[in-house]
Design a protein around this nucleic acid. Structure first.
Length: 511
RNA sequence: GGUCCCUUCGUCUAGGGGUUAGGACGCAAGAUUUUCAUUCUUGAAACAGGGGUUCGAUUCCCCUAGGGACUGCCA
């Protein structure tokens, strides 16, 4: 397949145009895993060559996201490195030089057509049910240094007429690329257009130029990116050829897209809002004040996010599903990346988090739960009790935040009683019988779940009561509902006084 | 429309010329349980269609269909 190079250097190259999308995070992850696997370098390059779409704070968001997920960057804007700067807006001069070089070599040309003119052409073509393309069939009809005579070109440039630099795509060249995930991919250059490489609007290169120049200069060995770039591959390959860099051209790997849970198309911000799952690693508030949920704020553990993302489009071929990041780095190979897009499954995402939550120690979870308790107005005096409670309920929740509804009754008396349970279990004989239960409990001097269970069970049997009814009624009066861990453990933890108080209150209120 | 990519249970996927087509999520049933969960067991659930090649195709090839991406002075 692909030859392994000695010094693997991969880059994650996002644009700071908004919050990093979960698909972008997965691209970062696969790059990171690949670098780790081969003992190579993981580089973060900021591709901010679109001044119009630049969003302030987006770069910080990217850094914070990768940090939260513990995807350590070897070289980047913050980390520095031998190939700095790593922010493309700071490499302007480099790109200009390389754009000019292409003109000199005859691989590119100046084009004076304005955006308005081009748009008009597109509309005109569309009206005739055709598609306009700036390519070998049209370029001689347009205003550029290929169609205009030399004097005219010089006059325009000298008088400051804005121009872009376009790649002169050669005709009828077959470009074969061996993609690491897709195998051989083939294109004919005659179907390709003359892409803008250098913009007049902001005097910055487009992605294509900046990307190829930087990947070359930064000695990138493998380009692992989303499938949306596959159609650009022949252009990129031709650029490497134009510069004479073909022998060091990186290997390409185009990752499948992450698709909507249901419906058509790739995962978008909207889907998350609609289905109630995050699409972004961190919560994000746009400049318009619109907030989108983040995995972090939704209570996902970073390890769980890494795990679930790794298995979206890749698997090790075994039945193992839970992996540490180190395990993933060991097991990861591009060859086992799938070709087809994967629908995102919010349900399974929650399951992953559940697995990680269960695996955490009680003290770890208790520490995470204390802030939730404080928020609910519970001040924690005894952390060991919280640890114990958390241990009792961690099997039944997916998120730390869900713990409260599973265990609030350990901390506060029920505020009401579930009517269905009242109807079903709060029989007429319950209130009087509860008095004998209270009496029995008050006599206990060994306040421990098993002992309590024995005493109460004996009482129930001795009085010929229905075990289920009494137990449910008791649970109702203590928790307000019909769910939760072992009842006698609850009784043990909340203590004698509180237990008696709650039973008396329920008896009073429900009679 | 054009170019390119993709196609195994509802979803994520394993597999790969001869298999009872495996696992996971979710779903259903049963067992356990004082409740709800957990846990355990079981179950329903897939090779898009049509042609080839072959003794044999879900697997290889072609076509069709469906899906996706791209088609910007965005990345």
């Amino acid at each position: 397949m692909y030859q392994q190079k000695n010094n693997v250097r991969v880059r994650f190259a996002p644009s700071p145009t908004g919050p990093l999308h979960i698909g972008g995070v997965r691209t970062a992850l696969f790059n990171y895993l690949f670098a780790k696997k081969h003992g190579g370098k993981f580089i973060l390059r900021i591709e901010d060559t679109d001044s119009a779409r630049f969003v302030s704070g987006a770069e910080e968001y990217i850094n914070e996201s990768l940090k939260w997920l513990d995807l350590t960057i070897d070289e980047g804007v913050v980390e520095g490195g031998a190939f700095a700067p790593y922010r493309q807006s700071q490499r302007k001069d480099i790109y200009k030089k390389y754009a000019d070089l292409l003109i000199e070599k005859g691989w590119a040309y100046y084009a004076f057509d304005t955006p308005d003119e081009l748009n008009a052409l597109r509309e005109q073509y569309e009206a005739e049910k055709k598609t306009f393309a700036y390519d070998n069939s049209t370029r001689l009809l347009l205003n550029n240094s290929l169609s205009l005579n030399n004097d005219e070109i010089q006059v325009r440039i000298a008088s400051g007429v804005p121009y872009v630099i376009r790649f002169k795509m050669p005709e009828n060249v077959t470009v074969n690329i061996n993609d690491m995930v897709r195998g051989e991919v083939s294109f004919n250059t005659s179907t390709l257009d003359d892409k803008v490489l250098y913009k007049s609007a902001d005097q910055l290169p487009t992605y294509h130029l900046a990307n190829i120049v930087d990947d070359h200069l930064m000695e990138i060995t493998h380009v692992i990116r989303g499938e949306e770039w596959l159609p650009s591959v022949p252009l990129h390959a031709m650029l490497y050829r134009a510069y004479g860099w073909e022998d060091t051209m990186p290997q390409f790997a185009h990752l499948p897209l992450i698709l909507k849970p249901n419906g058509k198309g790739k995962l978008s911000k909207r889907d998350g809002d609609k289905e109630g799952f995050p699409v972004f690693p961190l919560q994000y508030t746009s400049s318009e004040g619109e907030t989108s949920a983040g995995y972090r704020e939704s209570g996902y553990f970073p390890e769980a996010v890494i795990n679930l993302l790794a298995l979206l489009g890749w698997n090790p071929g075994t039945e193992q599903e839970i992996f540490t990041c180190d395990e993933l780095a060991n097991l990861f190979t591009i060859e086992r990346v799938n070709k087809s897009g994967a629908r995102f499954d919010p349900e399974k995402a929650r399951w992953f988090n559940h697995q990680y939550l269960k695996a955490k120690s009680n003290s770890e979870l208790a520490a995470l739960f204390v802030p939730v308790l404080n928020e609910k107005g519970v001040s924690v005096a005894d952390i060991s009790t919280v640890e114990r409670i958390v241990g009792l309920i961690k099997e039944r929740v997916n998120f730390v935040a869900e713990m409260w509804e599973q265990c609030h009754f350990f901390f506060v008396a029920p505020e009401g009683y579930d009517e269905k349970v009242v109807k079903k279990h709060w029989k007429e004989m319950i209130p009087p019988f509860m008095q004998t239960v209270v009496a029995t409990l008050q006599m206990q001097n060994h306040w421990e779940a098993n002992t309590l269970k024995t005493s109460v069970s004996e009482l129930i049997t001795a009085n010929g009561q229905s075990f289920g009814t009494v137990m449910n009624a008791l649970r109702l009066s203590l928790t307000g509902g019909s769910f939760g861990p072992d009842l006698f453990t609850i009784i043990e933890i909340i203590g004698k006084d509180e237990t008696v108080r709650r039973i008396n209150r329920a008896t009073g209120e429900l009679s």
